[in-house]
């Protein structure tokens, strides 16, 4: 038996660090049934189920069968509602975007998935402008992952609307070799994982050659996050990076997170009108 040593599994460096610690413990165990003792846990950000799914996927690769024991009933319920646990519960309030796995080529299916779940009446009533920016942001994130992931690992997605906080959150996770892995493959070693994330989040950064560099979409997204006072969070191997509003927080995790998770959290009560002052003219656009 191993233990999940945190009371709150949130999208913080502590939360991702706890998942990284679990991965480290599991990687030192052999095949077979492994109990993960979770009685300390009193809060779980539901959209972190996508990161947990990557953990489970890695364990399955080691022929381990995980059992989460000692979970509070409300947390079990959350993880059943979003499909992380088998025996899916009906999501009475329809505030969940259930855990779903997409291949890197599934950008269209991902777009349809987000449209479908956000169109439910229980989901936040966002302004048209905000909803468009949200869709644009997550589409850019998915496209960026598809283009710049050097491994063919699928992307696991999970989302949650928190009505009290008026916060909509979505997490995309893959079990690949992380941003630092892509960086080192192209440029060699000598950078900390959190700095590799910071580099990847800048305009024009790319590990591809010959194409127009990526990063333009991320620049648009980061500006949106600033305006919305939302959060954009990346955990990748030992790196943790968070933009909240315009502030950046970076940290190194003690153990490597099993891949990359990108979290987007937005304030749904935002009534700003986006993109109203910068229309281009069709007549001279080329």
């Amino acid at each position: 038996m191993i233990a999940l040593n945190t009371a709150r599994l949130e999208t913080t460096d502590t939360g991702f660090g706890a998942i990284a610690d679990l991965e480290e413990s599991l990687s030192n165990l052999g095949a077979g049934l492994v109990d993960i003792e979770c009685s300390r846990l009193i809060w779980l950000d539901a959209h972190l189920a996508s990161a947990l799914r990557v953990l489970v996927s890695h364990s399955q690769g080691r022929n381990q069968n995980l059992r989460f024991v000692g979970l509070r009933s409300e947390i079990t319920k959350i993880l059943k509602k979003n499909g992380f646990f088998q025996g899916k519960l009906t999501d009475t309030y329809s505030t969940t975007m259930p855990s779903h796995v997409f291949s890197l080529e599934d950008g269209v299916a991902f777009a349809e998935y987000t449209r479908r779940y956000l169109s439910h009446p229980s989901m936040p009533v966002m302004s048209d402008s905000l909803q468009r920016k949200f869709f644009e942001g997550i589409d850019e994130l998915f496209a960026n992952s598809s283009l710049h992931s050097l491994s063919p690992t699928p992307i696991c997605v999970c989302g949650q609307f928190f009505p009290t906080k008026q916060m909509l959150a979505i997490t995309m996770s893959d079990g690949g070799h992380g941003i630092i892995g892509s960086y080192e493959k192209t440029f060699g070693s000598g950078i900390m994982a959190c700095d590799a994330i910071d580099w990847a989040m800048q305009e024009g950064s790319t590990t591809r050659h010959g194409d127009i560099p990526g990063g333009l979409g991320l620049a648009i997204l980061r500006e949106f996050i600033s305006q919305n006072s939302g959060r954009l969070i990346v955990a990748s191997k030992r790196g943790y990076w968070c933009q909240q509003g315009r502030n950046i927080h970076k940290a190194e995790l003690k153990k490597p997170f099993p891949g990359t998770s990108i979290v987007m959290e937005i304030d749904c009560s935002d009534r700003k009108l986006y993109d109203i002052n910068n229309a281009a003219t069709p007549d001279n656009i080329w």
């Binding site: 620049a219 949106f224 910068n278």
Partner: peptide, 14 residues
């Protein structure tokens, strides 16, 4: 390339 982006995206939203 990178030079042109920040100026254009910086005023993206209003």
């Amino acid at each position: 390339v990178s030079g042109i982006i920040s100026s254009e995206v910086g005023g993206d939203d209003d």
